[in-house]
């Protein structure tokens, strides 16, 4: 059921956070499933279409980094996507291969005239995540990988 909206079109609080967890093998073809899960959760709660598209893009970028990192290091352990929806929307992507080195986190958008597109991408993904999400956090996790936490804050969560 979509969350009801008040007269000003702002989302009501969802009393309890709803969490969906997806674990998937580190293969590129599964990233569309991760997008589908996160996007559908948001849609079912009546989140505005353009915000749903931002969520799909954020999930795709973070999962792409995770899958690439694990494939490069031949780590077969599953990648974990947690989507947590209450007044805000938070996604956590946990990999087992250190997908994002700390020095990459503050990268700006590359100059298209100078980018080198290699196996790890052209370098647009991380700055794109940082621009789209209200909060981003990249940390080393206990599995020796990276956990990326991306949050769209309450003000961001317009409803359709």
């Amino acid at each position: 059921m979509p969350a009801p909206s008040d007269a000003e079109g702002k989302p009501d609080m969802i009393e309890e956070a709803e969490t969906i967890r997806l674990t998937f093998p580190p293969r590129p073809e599964h990233i569309s499933i991760a997008r589908l899960v996160a996007g559908t959760l948001a849609e079912r709660h009546g989140v505005a279409h353009d915000v749903v598209e931002e969520i799909r893009l954020l999930v795709s970028e973070a999962c792409t980094n995770a899958v690439r990192a694990q494939l490069a290091r031949e780590v077969a352990a599953p990648i974990v996507l947690d989507c947590v929806l209450n007044a805000e929307f938070r996604v956590e992507i946990t990999d087992h291969a250190g997908g994002i080195a700390p020095e990459m986190v503050n990268h700006k958008f590359p100059d298209p005239e100078a980018v080198e597109v290699c196996g790890q991408g052209a370098g647009f993904g991380i700055p794109l995540m940082r621009r789209l999400a209200d909060h981003t956090r990249f940390t080393r996790n206990a599995q020796g990988g990276t956990t990326v936490v991306l949050t769209l804050g309450r003000e961001h969560m317009r409803h359709a």
Binding site: G121, A122, L128
Partner: peptide, 13 residues
């Protein structure tokens, strides 16, 4: 329906 940074990279090249 969907384009992410990987697709952008292809277009840039």
């Amino acid at each position: 329906q969907f384009l992410d940074s990987t697709g952008l990279g292809v277009l840039v090249v």
